[in-house]
Design a binder for these strands. Sequence first.
DNA 1: CTGAAAGCGCTAACAA
DNA 2: TTGTTAGCGCTTTCAG
Lengths: 342, 342
Amino acid sequence: MGKGKVTIKDVAKVAGVSTGTVSYALAGDPRINEKTRKLVEEAAHKLNYIPNEVGRSLRSRKTETIAFVIPNTSSHVFSHPYFLKLLEGITEVLEEYSYNLQISTTPSEKEEAKAYDKILRSNRVDGIILSSASLKDRNILRMVESGFPVVYLGKWHHEEVLTVERDDFRGAYEAASHLAGLGRRRIVHISGPLDHQESVDRLEGYKQALSDHQILYDASLVVEKDFSREAGAAAVEELRAANVRYDGIFAGNDLMAIGALKQLKRMNIAVPEEVSVVGFDDIDMADAVTPELTTVHQPMREIGRMAAEKLLAVLQDREVPEKRSIVSTRLIIRESCGGQPQ
Amino acid sequence: MGKGKVTIKDVAKVAGVSTGTVSYALAGDPRINEKTRKLVEEAAHKLNYIPNEVGRSLRSRKTETIAFVIPNTSSHVFSHPYFLKLLEGITEVLEEYSYNLQISTTPSEKEEAKAYDKILRSNRVDGIILSSASLKDRNILRMVESGFPVVYLGKWHHEEVLTVERDDFRGAYEAASHLAGLGRRRIVHISGPLDHQESVDRLEGYKQALSDHQILYDASLVVEKDFSREAGAAAVEELRAANVRYDGIFAGNDLMAIGALKQLKRMNIAVPEEVSVVGFDDIDMADAVTPELTTVHQPMREIGRMAAEKLLAVLQDREVPEKRSIVSTRLIIRESCGGQPQ
DNA sequence: CTGAAAGCGCTAACAA
DNA sequence: TTGTTAGCGCTTTCAG
């Protein structure tokens, strides 16, 4: 039996009905007589018939495929541990609905526009889940506003667009407050790239926490880095070189926190005795390091699930309960801070 | 401009040629006159024409999409850190060739057969990269032997099938030899599930290394686990409960090694002073833990690249240089063993 | 070198 | 309740 050789015509012939009837019967259309349906199903089963999805898509204008798009500008996302959790959540839901998943990374930045156009208009996918990107990225804007079904993973300043967001502000607020509550007064913030909304929000949460604890904001304690371990280590090194004194670090993500931890160890600075450290993300690595990292947990798998559910609701013309969904974070206290807040 | 509304007909009309000519012109067919080609290209550009891939696929019987299939039986792969590297390698190559990537996880085991059939015969993808699976999995067998273009990531006992393999035996051999070279004599092996070829090969490499170092194989030192951190910790705990004495651990992967490390720490057993530990994989976590983990590096990104290259060679009727590709591993010596071998 | 036209496999509108 | 048929958008023979 050659692959894909048996078509709807063959089934129709064997069942002694027309192709239209086969199509309806297999789709479970109520208009088809029970007996005929049985007949068709038997024929299909005997021939081991599997519909050609391409023919189906062309006619019905549906692919039952969605794309998970990772913008070039945030290509780092791709190598981040939490990306897997996101993917897990998405695939779980898609499996339930028998949808397919396509992964689209965009190539070089200059070809991005074309790449997006292609995704949107080549009719290969019905909708997309868009990973968060730089605020400067104009292509994202076009994508989101194209009218094509999109769920954006992050905050988007537009009424109509569907999003699943973390509460970055609140997460950061709690993290920094925790440090302040432990008596830390000179708290460094190693932020992610500030052209990313999440970084901005985390920085704001940090500032608010300081303010609420009567700590004066000191710009020399904030360093902007790129979310990598190396950057976290570099930040600590730079602070040393600049002779900055501090007793706490709130890092914009776990990788940077872990890099910082390592550098502190190299410099023989004791964590948490001399410096308390908090991260953000709660990746698997966070409780593998020594000391175990206190961090802000974000339910990435759940976010993936929600995004997929939301997108499918649109595609299947079901009610979308809320345009913006905001999932909350949770502070996980481990060893890198030294005890519960006072 | 509505999405995907402009078709080849529109372009033909504007350019004043037939649709066939447009098709050829845009494909760069040399039969088309230079002038006509220009004309068509201009029209296409002016209309912002993007071909409907579904129509194209139906006619040409090519989707320019490949699937990366993760079998249910090895669903753990999905949550493993190196999976991302694999994905990175694959997407890099696919981007070069403008191919699309579909991720297929198979649902519950009982529906696996049907799911595979669908992937193979619904004409949605041109070929697949198949992640390694249980040796017992009959569905994999069918898939590999179906004649559909498949690249299998692992060893496969069949002449015709294309594979990209690690040298698990040699990697394990070197790991265990390293321990033996450090004077370790009672070396535990925490193996992965033994219905996976890679686990079997690593076990064999371990045995060979023992034998070459005049160490008697002791079955009580081998425990079979499931590749997770928890399992690694559990293994160490079980050894304690059974009062087994040992001075080295070779774990079947890094996660188990890291789990073991943590449990040893809980039990106040010093690494590497009392027990030397080696892992396998060299995931990012390996050099984040304390002590940093000595492990066997496998170039997952390169493996992904090779698999994609190989599959594309088949799909594009190019020469496939070798059916089986075996990439070698490399022992990375860090802190968890205590020094260079004698 | 280009146009006309068949047809990939399927669905859905219309007829019967 | 079922059959007939047009046509989704494209590629690729076959003529010219």
